[in-house]
Amino acid sequence: MSVDQNTVRHIARLARIAVRDDELEALANELNGILSWVEQLGEVDTDGVEPMTGAVEMVMKWREDKVTTGNLQKEVTANAPGGDDGFFVVPKVVE
């Protein structure tokens, strides 16, 4: 499989990264270089192999249903590049 410039444009759109048209070719080449290299995994017989889900065998810990935090409006909005009256503010979203 290899990616063309349209694919790069599409992926960049999905990833919300603006890419200039004059960058597409170089990016496509780079990605194709990496992709053709990783495609050697195709040689490995993985029939019946379960995909790895965790790096180490362990049971996931659960938390209790307790309110342990809150009233952090100042803290969570302190770094916001756009903010007003305790809200985050962004360019208008049309639904």
């Binding site: 919300r16 990264i17 603006a18 770094n79 590049p81 756009g82 985050f88 360019p91 208008k92």
Partner: peptide, 18 residues
């Protein structure tokens, strides 16, 4: 660009993200 760090303004929300 919504809650912290860099924000480069854009014509709409998607443009801002990108």
């Amino acid at each position: 660009g919504v809650r912290y760090g860099l924000r480069v303004e854009g014509s709409d929300i998607t443009d801002m993200y990108e």
